[in-house]
Simulated assay, not measured.
Amino acid sequence: MMLGILDLDTTSNLISGFGGAILGVLATVWFERSNARKTMAFDLHRELNQESMMKARMDAQATLAAYSDYHLGELIREVPDELHSVWVISGFYDRLRIALDHRLVDSRFVSPLFGSLFCFFYFGFFEDQLLPAEWDISKNMNKLADTLRSNTPRNEWKAWVEAARREATRVRDATAKRRLKVDPQRLG
């Protein structure tokens, strides 16, 4: 029997071919998007470990350790010129959070690639100095911490947090000792 100009077999073949083509396109788009999300995770990791970012991390750590009694508002008022590295690091983590929020990065890779170092800054310094402020930086860092925590095995997260707090305490203590050696007036 003819349906217009095409018979049933031809119509069925056309529909099957068209359906297969659509499925092929969808699979290709999914694969490319999945691959792009993985690539983004590793590109961000590479960025975080570039020499300039390693220097920014060290400078941010030194600044926050040197002014460990200051919260964000005080840091901005008292030592604004020394905060560049802090903004670089917090900006990086904010971009990571935005990438996660918009599913531009594969969340399965974020915790293993960024979790322990993020914990070092978050629990070692940001938690006490930057996060008490009701600013976007606080909300954004808290949201990233929640995302990482939910994608990390509990025992691993706990170990990262404990190590971060220990190391930050060690850094603060070493910084305080260096300041005392440099500035004898602080002794009295």
Rank of each mutant, 00 (worst) to 15 (best):
residue 1 M to S: 10
residue 1 M to A: 14
residue 2 M to T: 07
residue 2 M to F: 14
residue 2 M to P: 01
residue 3 L to P: 00
residue 5 I to K: 11
residue 5 I to M: 08
residue 8 L to D: 06
residue 9 D to G: 04
residue 12 S to N: 11
residue 13 N to Q: 15
residue 18 F to M: 10
residue 18 F to N: 02
residue 19 G to N: 14
residue 19 G to F: 13
residue 21 A to K: 02
residue 21 A to T: 08
residue 25 V to E: 04
residue 31 F to G: 02
residue 34 S to Y: 13
residue 34 S to I: 03
residue 35 N to C: 03
residue 39 T to D: 05
residue 39 T to A: 11
residue 40 M to T: 10
residue 40 M to N: 13
residue 41 A to K: 03
residue 42 F to S: 06
residue 43 D to G: 03
residue 44 L to D: 00
residue 45 H to M: 05
residue 45 H to S: 11
residue 47 E to R: 12
residue 47 E to D: 07
residue 50 Q to M: 13
residue 50 Q to I: 09
residue 50 Q to E: 15
residue 50 Q to V: 13
residue 52 S to R: 15
residue 53 M to I: 01
residue 55 K to D: 04
residue 57 R to G: 13
residue 58 M to K: 15
residue 59 D to P: 00
residue 61 Q to A: 02
residue 62 A to D: 10
residue 63 T to G: 09
residue 64 L to S: 02
residue 66 A to V: 01
residue 66 A to G: 15
residue 67 Y to W: 13
residue 72 L to T: 00
residue 74 E to K: 11
residue 75 L to F: 14
residue 77 R to C: 01
residue 78 E to R: 15
residue 81 D to C: 01
residue 82 E to C: 01
residue 83 L to T: 09
residue 85 S to E: 14
residue 88 V to K: 13
residue 89 I to Q: 04
residue 89 I to H: 12
residue 91 G to P: 07
residue 92 F to M: 02
residue 92 F to T: 02
residue 94 D to L: 08
residue 96 L to Y: 10
residue 97 R to W: 09
residue 97 R to G: 08
residue 97 R to E: 11
residue 98 I to M: 12
residue 98 I to A: 14
residue 99 A to K: 05
residue 100 L to T: 13
residue 100 L to K: 06
residue 100 L to G: 11
residue 101 D to V: 10
residue 101 D to S: 06
residue 103 R to L: 00
residue 105 V to I: 12
residue 106 D to I: 01
residue 106 D to F: 07
residue 106 D to K: 12
residue 108 R to K: 14
residue 108 R to I: 01
residue 108 R to Y: 06
residue 109 F to C: 00
residue 110 V to N: 07
residue 110 V to I: 11
residue 111 S to Y: 03
residue 112 P to L: 05
residue 113 L to R: 06
residue 113 L to D: 04
residue 114 F to H: 13
residue 115 G to S: 03
residue 116 S to K: 15
residue 116 S to G: 04
residue 118 F to C: 04
residue 118 F to D: 08
residue 118 F to A: 01
residue 118 F to E: 07
residue 120 F to N: 08
residue 121 F to I: 05
residue 121 F to Y: 13
residue 122 Y to C: 06
residue 122 Y to D: 08
residue 123 F to G: 06
residue 124 G to A: 06
residue 125 F to N: 00
residue 126 F to D: 04
residue 128 D to H: 11
residue 129 Q to Y: 10
residue 129 Q to S: 07
residue 130 L to V: 12
residue 130 L to K: 00
residue 132 P to C: 03
residue 133 A to L: 06
residue 135 W to S: 01
residue 135 W to F: 14
residue 136 D to A: 09
residue 140 N to K: 15
residue 140 N to Y: 08
residue 143 K to Y: 04
residue 143 K to C: 09
residue 143 K to T: 06
residue 143 K to E: 10
residue 144 L to P: 02
residue 144 L to M: 08
residue 145 A to S: 11
residue 147 T to A: 05
residue 150 S to F: 05
residue 154 R to Q: 15
residue 155 N to W: 07
residue 156 E to A: 12
residue 156 E to M: 10
residue 159 A to R: 10
residue 159 A to G: 03
residue 162 E to T: 09
residue 163 A to C: 03
residue 166 R to H: 12
residue 167 E to M: 12
residue 168 A to E: 09
residue 169 T to H: 12
residue 171 V to T: 14
residue 173 D to H: 10
residue 174 A to G: 05
residue 174 A to H: 06
residue 174 A to F: 08
residue 177 K to H: 07
residue 179 R to G: 01
residue 182 V to L: 15
residue 184 P to V: 05
residue 186 R to M: 13
residue 186 R to V: 13
residue 188 G to I: 09
